[in-house]
């Protein structure tokens, strides 16, 4: 019961943040015509705003409308894959625009999206998706790609935060922007932790990702990710004042 409650709360929160933050970034992209906001907006919107509610709806309809549940599961997995790919492109364009290896990572994410779509579709067409356990293989596949993408984002953000912290000490950085890298690192690390939890339970539990313990831990990771993501990209004025005041106090 607690697990289902935490799972439902985190799905609702991610749904709200996916729409609020994702759409705000997409509107920014429409205005600026820049790739980073487009990729990040797409990633947040597709994963939080689309894939999570579709997965929840698919689970609810599993027994009463199996065909619809299967279609929703395919749509959810595909939205997640595209969102993860968009996150990889964001990492590449923001942190490593001149490097070659991120292009390989992005190519791998695109290929994984196609494989994931074809695999989920094929499993459903052959009557293979009737329970959570039937999705185990494709859940693990998606979680492995997502874990890589979110871990990459977390490492890049924390590394860049460390550089900016040193620049801040010399008066060469904005404390709010420095903090934003730390927050994005925390949010990405929480998402990566959630992927790890889901993958672990998909692998070990007969109930797969619907195991109550899995719901508690993955839900808690999602809540942390969603709250910190909001502080990162839609910070309340009070939080910005807190960061500026803290910096002014420590600089004295």
């Amino acid at each position: 019961m607690i697990g289902q409650g935490v799972g439902a709360l985190s799905t609702l929160l991610l749904f709200a943040v996916g729409w609020l933050v994702g759409v705000r970034l997409l509107l920014l992209a429409k205005r600026t015509r820049r790739a980073p906001e487009l990729c990040l907006g797409l990633g947040i919107f597709l994963i939080g705003g689309i894939a999570y509610p579709l997965a929840a709806a698919s689970n609810i309809m599993g027994e009463s409308a199996p065909n619809l549940a299967w279609l929703l599961a395919v749509a959810s997995a595909t939205a997640s894959h595209i969102g993860v790919t968009a996150n990889c492109i964001f990492n590449w364009k923001v942190f490593r625009p001149a490097s070659r290896w991120p292009r390989l990572a992005v190519t791998a994410a695109v290929v994984a999206t196609l494989i994931g779509f074809a695999g989920n579709l094929s499993a459903g067409l052959h009557g293979g998706i009737t329970s959570m356990a039937d999705k185990r293989g494709w859940t693990l596949f998606l979680m492995a790609i997502a874990l890589g993408a979110f871990s990459w984002a977390a490492v890049e953000s924390f590394l860049y935060h460390d550089k900016l912290r040193r620049r801040l000490a010399l008066g060469m950085a904005d404390p709010v922007v420095v903090d934003r890298f730390r927050l994005w690192g925390i949010s990405s690390a929480a998402s990566a932790t959630g992927c790890l939890v889901v993958a672990f339970f998909a692998w070990t539990s007969p109930l797969s990702v619907m195991d109550p313990v899995a719901l508690v831990f993955s839900g808690a990771s999602s809540v942390v990710s969603a709250v910190v993501m909001t502080l990162t990209f839609m910070p309340p004025a009070g939080y910005l004042r807190f960061i500026q005041t803290r910096h002014a106090t420590s600089a004295q």
Partner: peptide, 15 residues
């Protein structure tokens, strides 16, 4: 030629 990560994050947060 390339925008810095801090310029991007400043814009993404509403700067």
């Amino acid at each position: 030629a390339e925008e810095s990560p801090e310029a991007i994050f400043k814009r993404l947060g509403g700067g």
